[in-house]
C-alpha cells in the first residue's frame, strides 16, 4: 500500500517540469510570427516554410540520414558479432584487449575519439567525406550495440542453443534459427540506439567530415553559435516530434503486448 507523499509528488512534478519546460518553450516559439524568439507575436507556421526552402539544411539532412542508416547497420552487424564473441566466444588471444576496446569508447570523450580518427584518416591519406563519417560513427556505435546485445545474450538460456544442436542444427543454423530470433529485440534496439547516436553526433562528425559533407548537427551548431533563430526552433520541433512519436509508439506497443500476454495467460488458466 504505497501512497505518494507530498514530497514525492513535489519532486516528480518539479523534476519533470525541469526536464520538459525548456523543450516545450522551444516548440511553442517555433510557431511564433516574429523573428525575435523571445517575444510572442502571434501564431504562424512560416518558419517551417522557410526551413523547407533552405537547400543547405535539406542537403545536410540527407547526408545525416544516409550516414545514420549506413553506419548504424554496420555498427549493428559488428556490434552483434562482438557481443557474441564476448559472451559465447570462450577464451582467445587478446580477449582482454578486445573487451577493453569495446568498453573504452563508451567513456572516451568525443573530442578525443574525433581527433584520433581524423589523425588516422590523414595519416593514411583518406579523403574526408561521407565515407569517413560512416567509419567513425560505425566504430563508436558498435560498442553501444555490443553492450545492449550482450546484456540480452547473458540472460539467454544457453541450453536453447544446445537443444538446437542436439536436434541436428549446425552451429550457424542454431544461431540463425534460435539465437537470432530471441535476441532480435536487443539487436533492433541496438540499431535504433546507433542510429540516434549518429543523428545526434556533432563532435566526431565535425572532425571526420570534409567540406562537402556537412551533417545536420554541424549545420545546426554553426547556425546556433550566432544565436537563437526561429528556423532552428522549427527544425528542432520536427526532430523532437519524430523522436517522441517513435518512443511513445514503441512503449505503447510493448505495453499492449504485455497486456495481451497477461490476458492470454489468464484465459489459459480459466
Amino acid at each position: 500500500m504505497r501512497r505518494l507523499s507530498w514530497f514525492n509528488v513535489t519532486s516528480l512534478t518539479l523534476g519533470f517540469a525541469f526536464l520538459y519546460i525548456p523543450i516545450l518553450i522551444l516548440v511553442i516559439y517555433s510557431f511564433n510570427e516574429s523573428r525575435l524568439v523571445t517575444v510572442w507575436a502571434g501564431f504562424s507556421t512560416k518558419w517551417y516554410g522557410t526551413l523547407l526552402q533552405n537547400q543547405a539544411f535539406l542537403d545536410a539532412a540527407t547526408v545525416t540520414l544516409k550516414v545514420g542508416v549506413i553506419s548504424s547497420t554496420i555498427a549493428t552487424i559488428l556490434g552483434t558479432m562482438a557481443a557474441y564473441v564476448m559472451v559465447r566466444g570462450g577464451r582467445f588471444f587478446g580477449r582482454t584487449l578486445f573487451s577493453g576496446m569495446i568498453y573504452a569508447p563508451l567513456v572516451m570523450p568525443e573530442v578525443i575519439t574525433g581527433l584520433s580518427l581524423l589523425l588516422l584518416f590523414i595519416a593514411i591519406g583518406l579523403d574526408r567525406g561521407i565515407f569517413t563519417i560512416v567509419l567513425a560513427h560505425a566504430t563508436f556505435s558498435m560498442c553501444y550495440v555490443s553492450v545492449v546485445v550482450s546484456s540480452r545474450l547473458v540472460s539467454f538460456d544457453k541450453s536453447l542453443e544446445e537443444a538446437a544442436l542436439d536436434l541436428g542444427c549446425t552451429p550457424f543454423d542454431a544461431f540463425k534459427s534460435v539465437t537470432l530470433p530471441i535476441i532480435a529485440p536487443a539487436v533492433i534496439s541496438g540499431w535504433l540506439l546507433a542510429f540516434t547516436l549518429s543523428l545526434d553526433d556533432l563532435v566526431i562528425a565535425s572532425f571526420a567530415a570534409g567540406p562537402s559533407s556537412t551533417t545536420l548537427p554541424i549545420k545546426i551548431y554553426s547556425a546556433v553559435r550566432l544565436g537563437v533563430t526561429p528556423e532552428i526552433n522549427a527544425l528542432s520541433t520536427i526532430m523532437i516530434g519524430i523522436v517522441a512519436f517513435g518512443v511513445i509508439t514503441a512503449s505503447l506497443v510493448s505495453k499492449r503486448n504485455i497486456a495481451r500476454i497477461k490476458r492470454d495467460e489468464q484465459n489459459a488458466l480459466k
Binding site: I23, V37, Y221
Partner: peptide, 30 residues
C-alpha cells in the same frame, strides 16, 4: 514504466537541441 519512458525520452532527442533550448531561456531577454 511511463515515468521511466519520460525520463529516457529526452535522451533520444538531440543533445544539441536540448542545449540550444536553454539559450533562449537564459539570454538577457530570455
Amino acid at each position: 514504466p511511463t515515468l521511466m519512458m519520460f525520463i529516457i525520452l529526452p535522451f533520444w532527442t538531440s543533445f544539441l537541441i536540448r542545449v540550444y533550448a536553454w539559450m533562449g531561456i537564459l539570454s538577457k531577454q530570455g
